[in-house]
Design a protein around this nucleic acid. Structure first.
Lengths: 206, 206
DNA sequence: TAGATTGTTAATCGATTAACAATC
DNA sequence: TAGATTGTTAATCGATTAACAATC
């Protein structure tokens, strides 16, 4: 019964989950497919069909129960558990990420922060002590870290990614903007706000 | 001849542009469709077709000239010019954004930083002075700002967005994670790194 | 009951993929 | 020439959209 989802469906479900989590925080008890559509820019019919494929989660004339839907989608995506992250780079960007609760909201826990600057090692941020890059293999192994977040300058990004891969990390989240090469069994996600900005601007100008 | 692009094509072209810009920074003179595919996760055939629809930009057996392709895509997306941004929130995240060159790389210029904290007003960051939110309508008008970047805590995001919309901003870039409601003629883009993380994790676990 | 929204179908459109000739 | 990669076609698959009955 648990067949592998297509890439499109999985991406959309993750997006719905993000909106639902925020709606819950805002105190919303129920939400309609049209509201989810507004926030995700996904067609409302598409949303209803995506969901109805896994069960009847909605109530006609009312919408979807936020708590219940969060639980259902978490189960479908199998991301209900706790997952450990290591953050590389204790600069402004790194500390801003460590402070944000966007990861914590979805069960991702930053279990270690690493920085090459000796002056930063030993300092604390969000209850997590900054450690040396030398500790990386041990940290990844002992705490079963599967995601590494790269928040270093562009010219240091490839080196950091290499360290992460050598240490056993299989998902790299790249905030540096730089292009990163990794082995085929490792996934890199490069966040590029400018891409969405260029896209929005095109339709604004056109 | 300049017909309006479909949403999918425009988004992909923006993505290619981001990769090309980074490749140029890394000193690359040429790039193949397969390389762009690796970095964007877009099918290589799809990339070649997207590009060949606008002209013959590539050289068989070699690939695409990076500089030339940047110029071509910029023209297609009509984003070759300079565009002004206002940044709201001079906290860690805001300053990290102001420091990053991800926007500058694509011709977006942060012309003003705004923060409600009186202690921050008057301080400088990246050559830009932090101003009071009261100045927002004047700034947007005088400098023809069309994009507002929201880098404030989640509970302040809606208020900031309202201020931006009242001041005339038509594209809101939301880093707070909170859900934001705006009039129909305004576009909101909410960055949610957790979405892509959940997505990557699903395929890692499955 | 009346209004609203889901669940679902059918029809269209765009994306994906494989394959390969053209050509650098 | 040999190898590589583009440009392009054709065939398949998934996304999108409109429409509407079911039902809360």
């Amino acid at each position: 019964m648990t067949e592998r989802l297509g890439g499109g469906v999985a991406a959309r479900l993750a997006h719905y989950l993000q909106v639902l989590t925020q709606a819950k925080k805002a105190g919303r008890g129920a939400i309609t497919s049209h509201e989810i559509s507004e926030y995700t820019h996904v067609n409302a019919t598409q949303i209803r069909r995506d969901l109805s494929g896994f069960g009847t989660f909605g109530k006609r004339g009312v919408g979807y129960n936020v708590d219940a839907l969060i639980s259902e989608i978490s189960t479908i995506l199998r991301t209900a558990g706790q997952h450990n992250i290591v953050l590389i780079g204790a600069g402004r960007l790194g500390l801003a990420i460590a402070e944000a609760d966007v990861f914590a909201d979805h069960g991702f826990s930053i279990v270690a922060i690493v920085d090459a600057d000796p002056a930063k090692i030993g300092t604390t941020c969000g209850g997590v002590v900054v450690q040396s890059p030398d500790e990386l293999p041990r940290i990844v192994d002992e705490m079963t870290v599967i995601v590494g977040v790269v928040a270093v300058p562009a010219d240091a990004a490839q080196g950091v990614a290499d360290d992460l891969v050598r240490s056993g990390v299989r998902i790299v989240f790249n905030y540096s903007g730089a292009l990163i090469d990794v082995p085929p069994d490792v996934t890199v996600h490069t966040t590029s706000p400018a891409v969405e900005l260029l896209y929005a601007l095109y339709f604004h100008l056109a």
